[in-house]
Design a binder for these strands. Structure first.
Length: 848
RNA sequence: GCGAAAGUGGCGGAAUUGGUAUACGCGCUAGACUUAGGAUCUAGUCCCGAGAGAUCGGGUUGGGGGUUCGAGUCCCCUCUUUCGCACCA
């Protein structure tokens, strides 16, 4: 019963009421516009940016929260370092879910999107995340997308935007075309439907012209994860090689026919191995190749061949390019001349040659290419060795090869090159020789294709073009922007863009002649919106220009970009491309938009549905709502747990039980705050607590610099435990406890902003914790006078000794040798040498 | 198949980059305070063996070699998992 009379009784202390504390500070931050930045001043600037979210109808779960919490911790840390940190937020608000909601529920995308934005904004608020909302942007507003249109017109003017008819990826689920980057393993990146091919006339951005610059730029991006850079390099897929012309033998003609040499009589191939040309025993064209029709025109089975070509053309990409896909081909019955050997070789069509890469046709060298060998053996086509391995039996028929010979042997039977080994030098000599003969030239090919930006959907930026029967595709003049998306639209879910059925939108006067024209109804890929949005934050309300180049020069590029790895190629490649376009327009002074990139790991959790631990998502039924968690334990608890769960760049498994550890920790911190007055005026352990305070500042600072929030929290838990013990045992004075507590609050603020601000205020500090400066440590105060050293004998730990911190090697050695345990383990053997690691250990090595 | 990353207690993970392996937290065990508690506090918790005991010995970072006074960390081989790319000529 005595306990109840004591002031330390927990029941009598003010309880940790996270609900009212969090509300109080969230209100205050909002009211005081705490995160607002005046862009006119850029000293000590730091532009940090979270990838702006899509305002989908689903509430954010704790897995999404990790990203924003992490960013907010970084932001607050920067603020406390006196940085002028800009942390804006906006909405990637165009896109299919809004349109699908319109179809399914009859709500127009605008109110649907605005409603979702409101919900998400409230969620950010409840996490205690500070954004500069004065610069909020939303890509679905005409104020934003008019600059997409403006950019499009500028790119059109420079030939970077263009229209062409081409085979394109069609997603039957989304009922629109897709960019190459949006096709993952032959399926739509968004909805997973198998993608098919269609021949359509579409708008493209000429990103391929920037392929080399995009590659070169990667080398300078030291602040990017290696993984992302590798993925981008692979995506661009630069290959050096040669183009080689093969003359087609005219029908009924022969190799020596003088009719050869006409332009139309050639087939050009791309190869990275021109040094194997003597082994090219046939040519293969993609069935879609424009020359295919002409080559089979006189074939007796022409109709059958044509329908086969159609079949290949209509094969979905998954089947066409999949791993186990069977190679299938047809002989055209025509021949071409191998310019190196002068021999006629058959021309085939086969599905394993892709129409979009290189020239859409290859020289097949079965001896030295795995795929060609497989096809040659399947069709009984000849195999000819160029590089002959040293142990190759003279009598062996190359057609018996089981595996293509890739880099072995020396060239035989190719006169000027006999004896050469495979390598870049040999390739160069072959290219020079081909050039001399006038049948080939050096050539670089890329896997990257131009960015298809047209979408046959409503909820996107209208492409500012009017088609005139007289003047063709006419750009909408700049002073007529924006081309506003009409509101009165019927969403039926039928194929075709709903915009096509809005006469007031479609019918437009030709800007050139004023005659009746038809407006482009395709809208832009939403990745256009996100390719430059980071610049619009710097001029969110400017209705006169896309952004202010002077402000952009001061604030951009983004110093720290944070977001998911899923954008490793898509968004990040497009943004790097558009940045270069803007650079070429003279609007920005840099070519790389994001100096440092951080990809947070995803949160996983066990899913009852699948019986496996997998990425947290609403559809998998394994998501955890922050709403309930915040209600029960508070946003600070969620924040601390999320940061403590593991390294932020690794995926982490959510553990419902472990969350309470974070709450216990914060409760302990709270209790210390309520008990500081119990500390005695003088404390025997003051020195040690002070030492721990400085050591913790050092550790946490070091951790924060490396985004190691998990170990930063661990260090703070240790300091909290030390403080609790000191108070419990009354071993530290009030002054020293208060100092340690103040530092603890400062160091903990980025992780748990609400409770730390509240306790800081209770400590009668006038300025807010966020405005206080990050605590500094004194190395001298971290050092101890006496330190413990580990003593090893022959590498095994045998004892610990205490010595003066500045003891020299001889003193350490004699102290170690004085240990009984050490003597016992040395077993009378002679000391061969002693290795001393200052401040850590001494290893006594005995002679054996 | 190619490329990259990673394998540490029952679980999440730590280790100042070659120097005390398992910090911190969850869980678990025992106890205290409680009408009660999923609250709070205290002690313990890698494995094996010895001891009543404080302790003492041995082993341990997927597996096998190597370098070194000393290896979770470096090198070689191997297994497993995850991710990315994949008929790109």
């Amino acid at each position: 019963m005595r306990r109840f009379e004591e002031p330390t009784n927990p029941a009598m202390m003010s309880p940790y009421d996270h609900k009212s504390i969090e509300k109080k500070w969230q209100d205050r931050w909002e009211k005081q516009r705490t995160a607002e930045v005046d862009l006119r001043h850029a000293q000590r600037k730091h532009y940090m940016l979270m990838m702006f979210p899509y305002p989908s109808g689903d509430r954010l779960h704790v897995g999404h929260g990790r990203n924003y919490i992490l960013g907010d911790a970084v932001y607050r840390y920067l603020r406390m370092h006196g940085k002028r940190a800009l942390n804006p937020m906006g909405w990637d608000a165009f896109g299919l879910p809004a349109e699908n909601a319109a179809i399914q529920r009859g709500v127009h995308p605008t109110p649907w999107t605005l409603g979702n934005i409101k919900v998400m904004k409230e969620q950010f608020r409840r996490w205690g995340i500070l954004y500069d909302w004065s610069k909020e942007i939303s890509s679905c507003t005409p104020e934003y997308y008019r600059w997409n249109q403006w950019l499009f017109l500028r790119m059109l003017e420079k030939g970077i935007a263009y229209k062409k008819k081409a085979p394109v990826n069609w997603c039957p689920g989304c009922k629109t075309v897709l960019a190459n980057e949006q096709v993952v393993e032959g399926a739509c990146e968004r909805c997973g439907s198998a993608v098919s091919q269609r021949d359509l006339e579409q708008w493209f951005f000429r990103i391929t012209d920037y392929a080399d610059r995009l590659l070169e730029g990667l080398d300078g991006l030291d602040g990017w994860p290696e993984k992302v850079k590798v993925m981008q390099r692979n995506w661009v897929g630069r290959s050096e090689g040669a183009e080689i012309d093969f003359a087609v033998v005219p029908l009924g003609g022969s190799a020596a026919d003088p009719a050869l040499g006409h332009q139309e009589g050639k087939i050009t191939v791309f190869t990275t191995r021109p040094d194997t040309i003597h082994g090219a025993t046939f040519l293969v064209l993609a069935p879609e190749h424009p020359r295919a029709a002409e080559l089979i025109a006189d074939h007796p089975d022409r109709t059958a061949l044509e329908s086969w070509i159609d079949k290949v053309r209509n094969t979905p990409r998954i089947e066409r390019e999949g791993e186990g896909t069977v190679k299938e081909g047809r002989a055209t019955g025509r021949f071409a001349i191998n310019p190196a050997t002068g021999r006629a070789i058959p021309i085939w069509l086969a599905n394993y040659v892709l129409p979009g890469y290189g020239t859409g046709s290859i020289m097949a060298v079965p001896a030295h290419d795995t795929r060609d060998l497989m096809f040659a053996r399947q069709e009984g086509l000849p195999v000819r060795l160029v590089y002959v391995p040293a142990d190759w039996p003279a009598e062996r028929d190359p057609a018996t090869l089981n595996e293509a010979i890739l880099d072995l042997g020396t060239i035989e039977n190719a006169p000027p090159f006999d004896g050469s080994v495979a390598g870049p030098e040999t390739i160069r000599r072959f290219i020079a020789w081909l050039e001399e003969q006038g049948v080939g030239r050096a050539k670089v090919s890329y896997r990257l294709r131009d960015w298809l930006i047209s979408r046959q959907r409503y909820w996107g930026t209208p492409i500012p073009i009017i088609y005139c029967p007289k003047h063709g595709a006419v750009p909408v003049p700049e002073d007529q922007l924006p081309v506003v998306l009409p509101v009165d639209v019927e969403f039926t879910g039928r194929e075709g863009n709903p915009l096509e059925r809005v006469p007031s939108f479609v019918e437009a006067a030709c800007p050139t002649c004023g005659g009746p024209g038809r407006r482009e109804t395709d809208t832009m890929d939403t990745f256009v919106d996100s390719s430059w949005y980071y610049l619009r934050y710097l001029a969110a309300h400017d209705s006169t220009k896309i952004f202010d180049p002077a402000i952009a020069a001061k604030w951009a590029p983004v110093d720290q970009y944070i977001g998911g790895i899923e954008h490793a190629i898509l968004h990040l490649l497009y943004a790097r491309f558009v940045c270069r376009v803007l650079f070429d327009f003279g609007l920005v002074t840099f070519e790389e938009p994001f100096t440092n990139l951080f990809n947070q790991g995803m949160i996983t959790r066990f899913s009852e549905k699948s019986g496996r631990t997998e990425k947290m998502s609403k559809s998998r039924g394994n998501s955890v709502s922050p709403d309930e968690l915040i209600e029960q334990m508070g946003a600070d608890t969620e924040r601390v747990y999320t940061l403590f769960i593991g390294p932020p760049d690794k995926e982490a498994e959510w553990n419902d039980e472990a969350v309470s550890g974070a709450h216990r920790f914060l409760s302990r911190v709270w209790r210390i705050g309520q008990r500081l007055s119990e500390a005695p005026p003088i404390g025997p352990a003051d020195g040690e607590l002070e030492r721990r305070r400085h050591a913790t500042i050092q550790r946490v600072t070091h951790c924060m610099e490396r985004y190691a929030f998990n170990t930063a929290v661990a260090a703070l838990m240790e300091l909290t435990n030390d403080l609790t013990r000191a108070l419990e045992e009354k071993t530290a004075s009030r002054l020293v406890c208060e100092e340690a507590f103040d530092s603890l609050l400062q160091l903990l603020h980025p992780m748990a902003p609400h409770v730390t601000e509240e306790l800081w205020e209770q400590r009668d500090h006038i300025e807010s914790l966020l405005d206080s400066s990050w605590p500094e440590f004194d190395e001298k105060k971290i050092r101890r006078a006496r330190i413990e050293l580990v003593v090893q004998v022959d590498g095994k730990l045998r004892d610990r000794i205490e010595v003066d911190a500045d003891a020299d090697e001889r003193q350490v050695r004699s102290a170690a040798l004085a240990s009984e345990k050490v003597q016992e383990h040395m077993g009378g053997r002679e000391l061969a040498k002693a290795v001393v690691v200052p401040g850590r250990l001494i290893n006594l090595v005995t002679r054996r």
